[in-house]
Design a protein around this nucleic acid. Structure first.
Ligand SMILES: [Mn+2]
Ligand SMILES: [Mn+2]
Ligand SMILES: [Mn+2]
Ligand SMILES: [Mn+2]
Lengths: 218, 218
DNA sequence: TAATAAGTTTAGATTAGTCTAAACTTTTGT
DNA sequence: ACAAAAGTTTAGACTAATCTAAACTTATTA
């Protein structure tokens, strides 16, 4: 049975791998895990030994089939628990990540399958990220950033890229949620900020923000 | 912050202390924790150092105020999670202990208070054990064993002493739940077995069983 | 009450996860 | 192309939790 730490490393390697198609290296893992590169080296040697990752000295790592399976299972659990925390316990979407970070390590297949049923087989977590099914399949629908939406077009918010509490609180304070319909009023060429309309209220949004909001066309 | 292991030790010391009013000694803790006495000695020295227990070499241990507070908090979390698993996820009462053993270590005060509210402030876990309130107060109502109920008397099942899966499954197979009304038909002096009636069906019950069922008078 | 048994602690290892400092390899930029 | 910078690994140390074997203390009982 894997330790929590090992599970967290596999998850970190998986998620770095998604955004960085080049090799997942020691420094990136260290940053993600908030630890030192030397600690990472120790751990990846152990994980390679156990055949959860491919590893060649100085060349970075990638997940094996086994390793990927486990990473996705942890992500599935993490996201289901986040749905529970928001939908059932009424946590705000910026408060759930830390707790899910712990809950994702509870070991019980029966628990997660009953939880999924209790939640009515949700397809997305509270930040719009897809929930893998019990076989590890993830529905990756392609993500359009709000920043690339044409002027005078309507769109619906379907996810956030950055789930930091500060970003989510900013969205809350502007009444932007998953499902909100936004209209792009104008774009400022100088700094790529944009003026958008939400609930008949116009808001000015920096490029920093609009790059972190995923939308779909209405 | 306490480790899971430290929390489990404090809980074990607390629960041994309830049944054994004499000193809680190394061997008993080792048995409960399924570990060796030498490991227990190491741990109790650490817990004494941190002032969670009183400890005198060769004389056993007892919880300090701080230690007791933590033990009760863990028990509160354990029992609330058990209620969640049975009432919301529809686990059977014999399946929840192991999972709650993990869930009880999740660190989040907000989580447990929202969970408690979600469950509608339950007073008892699925085995009839009282759930401590957020201040650590436990309602210990005195427990009558079925074995000591008079012949021809009705009573209601309010708890089980032994929550082992095998005992709970036995009760299931005889349709005995918390809240079941039982009538004592007769007692056998020879082996202290008794004949009882449940849902108009009579069942013969060994003393082993009747000593592990808590009831209240109807 | 003194020998034996039972229970407890210590000494010395082991494994997991982490760290710093030093050594080593790869990449980058003249 | 080669020196400096950046990145990675190793060596050695530390803490937490566990173990076995040996030493020690307390309880039992003849
Ligand atoms: Mn999350
Ligand atoms: Mn985690
Ligand atoms: Mn339990
Ligand atoms: Mn536990």
């Amino acid at each position: 049975m894997l330790s929590q730490t090992e599970e967290n490393y596999l998850k970190a390697i998986y998620s770095i791998g998604l955004s960085k198609p080049k090799s997942v290296n020691t420094t990136l893992i260290a940053k993600k895990m908030e630890t030192k590169p030397s600690s990472v080296t120790d751990m990846i040697q152990k994980l390679a030994e156990k055949e959860f990752i491919h590893y060649e000295k100085y060349k970075g790592v990638s997940l094996t089939q086994q390793g990927k399976k486990i990473a996705v299972e942890i992500i599935r659990k993490h996201r289901l628990w986040e749905v529970f925390l928001v939908n059932k316990l009424h946590f705000n979407w910026d408060e759930v990540h830390e707790i899910a970070e712990q809950l994702e390590h509870i070991k019980s297949d029966a628990l997660i399958s009953k939880l999924e049923e209790f939640l009515d087989f949700p397809k997305h977590d509270p930040h719009g990220d897809p929930i893998p099914d019990e076989n590890g399949n993830i529905a990756h629908h392609k993500k359009i950033m709000l920043s690339s939406v044409e002027t005078n077009t309507h769109c619906i918010v379907i996810g956030v890229k950055d789930s930091s509490s500060s970003f989510l609180k900013f969205l809350d304070s502007n009444n932007i949620q998953l499902g909100s319909t936004l209209k792009v009023i104008s774009k400022e060429e100088f700094d790529n900020s944009m003026l958008i309309e939400n609930n008949n209220i116009s808001i000015s949004i920096s490029n920093q923000i609009s790059k972190n909001l995923f939308v779909k066309n209405l």
